[in-house]
Simulated assay, not measured.
Amino acid sequence: MSEQYRLASPQCPLCSGLLQEKPTPGALVDVCADCHAVWIDWFDGDVSTVAAAVDVRPAVSQAKPGDRICPRCKDVLAPEHLRGQGPEILRCPSCAGVLIASTQLAEVVALGPVDDTTQDTPEEGLFRRMLNAIRSLGA
Rank of each mutant, 00 (worst) to 15 (best):
M1D: 11
E3I: 09
Y5N: 15
R6T: 05
L7A: 13
C12V: 05
P13R: 02
P13W: 02
S16A: 08
G17K: 06
L18E: 06
L18Q: 14
L19S: 00
K22T: 12
K22Y: 12
P23E: 08
P25H: 12
P25K: 09
V31F: 01
C32A: 03
A33V: 10
D34M: 12
C35R: 03
C35K: 00
A37S: 14
A37L: 02
I40T: 03
D41N: 06
F43L: 13
G45Q: 01
G45H: 06
V47S: 00
T49E: 10
V50S: 04
A52T: 04
V54P: 01
P58L: 03
P58G: 03
Q62D: 11
K64V: 07
G66K: 02
G66I: 03
R68Y: 00
P71E: 02
R72S: 13
K74Y: 11
A78I: 08
H81V: 04
R83P: 00
R83H: 14
Q85I: 11
P93Y: 05
S94Y: 13
C95S: 11
G97C: 04
L99K: 08
I100N: 07
A101D: 11
A101Y: 05
S102N: 10
S102V: 06
A106P: 09
A106I: 14
E107C: 12
E107G: 13
V108N: 14
V109A: 13
V109G: 06
A110M: 12
A110K: 07
V114M: 09
D115I: 11
D115F: 10
D115L: 05
D116V: 05
D116R: 08
T118Y: 11
D120P: 07
G125A: 06
F127S: 15
R128P: 03
R129M: 06
R129H: 15
M130R: 15
L131P: 08
N132T: 12
A133K: 06
A133S: 12
R135Q: 12
S136Q: 08
L137R: 14
A139G: 13
